[in-house]
Design a protein around this nucleic acid. Structure first.
Length: 824
RNA sequence: GCGGGUGUGGCGGAAUGGCAGACGCGCUUGACUUAGGAUCAAGUACCGAGAGGUGUGGAGGUUCAAGUCCUCUCACCCGCACCA
């Protein structure tokens, strides 16, 4: 018998699939479509195990859906702009474009050895002009619709990457990428107004039943909607008013001080001429110099200073001191708050520290209405006290009534606030899509006309860590003419955040070659939305939120018919080695290329899918890989043992008059079809699907002695086993399928449907329990009635013996499963 | 602090409220072999000689029956983290 030579086999079939254009698809209106997408990789140079896992999972789904009769779109591409390419240029003197394309070539080669069903004709790379042309087009459309704007803002500056970061890219005060401590910098930056979509991004989460609850909750928290009220207070001895936002208008009678963020514009005005002006300035200066983490972490002690100014509480005319404190953020709400120490823990701590009065205005059974004995703020429900005419109302009614009162008296009104901030997209780097804007001394800020896109990245660029875009030093790039007046003008030299590029790539896949529009409407209408999206949970907020925003925007400008891009989302777990994430620094990296060279792609795929369900983390095990390899070898020998005998069409599909062994074999076969189909389709439990196939192989092995008398049954088992295994380990299955006499690819074979008839059993084993403890097992007719089961149970020797001295209280019968005799 | 998740043999992991540990790894024994790190066969949660008993992080509870449902609690992991 030939040995299992995976190298030869895998190359052979990859070549065959490619020559036959097996995975090339086009719109077929009559066929149900299925858009199956895995997150495209950043071309770092080498495939890692996380990719292998991601793409192996995706390929099982794609192959299964295709064999089940769907027209499956399964594309692949490259998230090819980004910092590492530029860092490579900085450190090794390789041009980012050269570095990136070499990496893409290598990773494409590696990916192809995995035998995945990609339609490579649709490959995209975001760094290519024919792609980023349309990333720029997206910018123009957003700009036209007032969703792109420039403003000076305190932004997150990463000294390591020498660029600004989006809020989302700052993790615990540090750069998500290089872990440098992020600094605050005032810069003119471009933003996308994602906040305009906050409510819809929140509401439509409910239209996504196919998303993990966890991801939806994370997005919900990130959007952070809160309902409250905004109102203004007069400032004593000043024309200025102070506006605050609160979610607790019901506690407005408990206000004992006000707080401004240190950066609040009123600070300077209020401090001017006050005796403590100097101290205030020092304090503000110190706060501005403190990094975000140092200032906003929960465990940082609250700090503040009195401005010397007073505001007038419009509800009761009281004079309340205005403070400045580190715990109030300029960016949220109005950058100023009313402080109610009795009912807000932060205000409580601050008030205690600075001896500011505390006044209780909510009373309930479990809160002492006594400020002096309070040990923490009371934030629960209760009824209003010390609140003039509002006394006696519940917290909820209090909120409503105070809102109404403020509205009626022109003091303020109910408002909704979001935690979500606008998306900062400017990057002071070279390797990104240039922002298509021109600054003209006469016409001001002008957009590049659509017909002039793309604004090409110049090739001849010098890379140095200057904190400015290298494009700033390329005269041929920045010096241009104004599209309006034709006079000399200067280009914007910032490029776009790479998340912009990845916010619409799934649309591009629908018609990747069109040149006059980002994607063809009919193609997008056919394929979109993505039916199944698969990728790492680390993108739960960033990429997935931005992609949703873009999709809604494209829907609004009538480019797309769907409002949500991804109907179903599967977030896969990490690949671990020795309990921790594979990383160079830990030295626990297992190279996919090595594994594929040693065991083959079929083994690598099988192991990674078998070792753990997709959503969970996966512990890499070299011995586990051996096990998967052994199993494939076993299938190889097992199939070849029978292939000659079952080849050809002369074996009838005749399953009448079978022995009980043969019937059991058929039962197992059809049970496995059912199990594997359901495990793939309904639950993505590939590990249990594979174990079911292993069981089928084991059962076939035990059937050995009956095989020659039951060739129709053997043929059925062998062929079924190959089809069921083919989404997991496709190459070996193709080879064996051919050995079984088929000329057509197994990929084109319809997915089997289990026969109800074969799943009927004559006899089943049931369990006999006494008071819930298993005491015996019996084989009984599968259709035994409750009555019959009761008889059988009570007459069983074991039960009679064990219940001899006991009273039988009742008998629970679960037909086909068990009989439980309850005694006293 | 808030939100979410996970805890099951030596290991990865299975179990619509109905036989805990499927399947695989590892290990033990045997067979075939000059040999075995190949292959095949048998075994493998724990205690116990056995009958039997005990077991799903811990403590309670519901139920004829709990890994699964409820209450409390512990450990680890992830996300958010002064958002007024």
């Amino acid at each position: 018998m030939e040995r299992y030579d995976f190298k030869v086999i895998e190359e052979k079939w990859q070549k065959y699939w490619s020559q036959e254009n097996m995975f090339r698809v086009s719109e077929e209106p009559g066929k149900p479509k299925y858009y199956n997408l895995e997150m495209f990789p950043y071309p770092s140079g080498n495939l890692h195990m996380g990719h292998v896992r991601n793409y192996a999972i995706g390929d099982v789904v794609a192959r299964f859906k295709s064999m089940s009769g769907y027209n499956v779109l399964h594309p692949m591409g490259w998230d090819a702009f980004g910092l590492p390419a530029e860092n490579a240029a900085l450190h090794n003197g390789i041009h980012p474009a050269v570095w990136t394309h070499a990496n893409i070539d290598n990773m494409r080669r590696q990916l192809k050895t995995m035998g995945i069903t990609y339609d490579w004709d649709r490959e995209v790379a975001t760094c290519k002009p024919d792609y980023y042309k349309f990333t720029q087009w997206m910018f123009l459309k957003l700009y036209e619709n007032n969703l792109a704007y420039k403003k000076k803002a305190a932004v997150n500056w990463c000294p390591g990457c020498q660029t600004v970061l989006a809020n989302e890219q700052v993790v615990e005060g540090a750069c998500e990428r290089c872990e440098s401590s992020v600094e605050k910098k005032q810069l003119e930056q471009w933003f996308f107004k994602i906040t305009d979509y906050a409510q819809r991004l929140l509401d439509d989460l409910e239209k996504l039943p196919g998303w993990p609850e966890k991801v939806k909750i994370m997005q919900k928290n990130w959007i952070g909607r809160s309902e409250g009220c905004q109102f203004s207070l007069a400032i004593e001895g000043s024309e200025e008013t102070l506006t605050v936002y609160t979610t607790r208008p019901d506690t407005v009678f408990g206000v004992t001080y006000m707080v401004l963020a240190p950066e609040h514009p009123l600070v300077e005005t209020l401090a001017a001429g006050k005796p403590q002006e100097h101290e205030i300035k020092d304090f503000v200066k110190r706060m501005k110099g403190t990094s975000d983490i140092a200032r906003t972490a929960t465990d940082v002690e609250k700090e503040g200073i009195f401005t010397g100014a007073y505001a007038i509480n419009p509800m009761n005319g009281e004079r309340v001191p205005i403070w400045i404190a580190n715990y109030v953020l300029l960016e949220y709400g109005t950058g100023a708050i009313m402080a109610v120490p009795a009912h807000d823990q932060r205000d409580f701590e601050f008030a205690r520290k600075y001896d500011i009065p505390i006044r209780v205005v909510i009373k309930s059974e479990d809160s002492p209405a006594e400020a002096s004995t309070m040990t923490e703020a009371y934030t629960g429900d209760g009824c209003l006290i010390n609140s003039a005419s509002f006394d006696g109302l519940s917290v909820n009614d209090g909120k409503k009534k105070v809102n109404e009162y403020m509205k009626a008296n022109g003091i303020g009104e109910a408002t909704i606030n979001f935690r979500l901030r606008d998306w900062l997209i400017s990057r002071q780097r070279y390797w990104g899509a240039p922002i298509p804007i021109v600054y003209c001394p006469d016409c001001g800020m002008v957009t590049v006309p659509e017909k002039d896109l793309p604004v090409l990245l110049p090739e001849d660029v010098e890379f140095k860590p200057s904190g400015e875009s290298p494009l700033n030093y390329v005269e041929s790039f920045y010096s241009t003419t104004c599209p309006c007046c034709g006079g000399p003008a200067r280009r914007e030299t910032d490029t776009m955040d790479t998340f912009v590029c990845s916010s619409w790539y799934f649309d591009r896949y629908c018609s990747p070659k069109v040149a006059d529009t980002p994607f063809n409407r009919e193609a997008a209408d056919y394929w979109m939305p993505v039916d199944q999206y698969i990728g790492g949970v680390e993108h739960a907020i960033l990429h997935l939120m931005y992609a949703r925003f873009f999709t809604k925007f494209l829907y609004d400008i009538n480019m797309l018919s769907c409002e949500e891009p991804f109907t179903n989302l599967l977030t896969q777990g990490m690949v671990l080695k020795d309990g921790s994430k594979m990383s160079k620094s830990k030295g626990n990296v297992v190279s996919p290329e090595d594994i594929i060279n040693t065991y083959g792609a079929d083994t690598a795929r099988l192991f990674i899918l078998f070792a753990s369900p997709p959503e969970r983390d996966l512990e890499w095990s070299d011995q586990g890989v051996e096990g998967a390899y052994r199993f494939l070898n076993r299938v190889w020998r097992q199939v070849l043992e029978y292939s000659d005998k079952i080849k050809g069409g002369d074996i009838p599909k005749d399953y009448g008059n079978l022995s009980s062994e043969a019937r059991a074999m058929r039962y197992k076969t059809h049970y496995t079809i059912k199990k594997v189909s359901e495990d793939i389709e309904e639950r993505f439990n590939f590990n249990t699907a594979i174990s079911a196939i292993m069981e089928l192989s084991n059962t076939l092995n035990g059937f050995k002695n009956f095989a020659s008398d039951n060739l129709p049954v053997v043929k059925e088992v062998v062929e079924t086993m190959l089809i069921l295994l083919s989404p997991f380990s496709p190459h070996i299955c193709e080879e064996l399928w051919q050995a079984c006499g088929y000329n057509q690819s197994i990929y084109l074979t319809p997915w089997p449907v289990y026969e109800q008839e074969a799943l009927k059993q004559d006899e089943v084993e049931i369990v006999l329990q006494i008071s819930g403890k298993v005491r015996d097992r019996l084989t009984v007719p599968a259709d035994a009635s409750e009555e019959a089961l009761r008889e059988i149970a009570l007459n069983s020797e074991k039960i009679r013996e064990l219940t001899k001295y006991k009273n039988i209280v009742k008998i629970i019968i679960v037909p086909g499963k068990l009989v439980n005799v309850v005694t006293k």
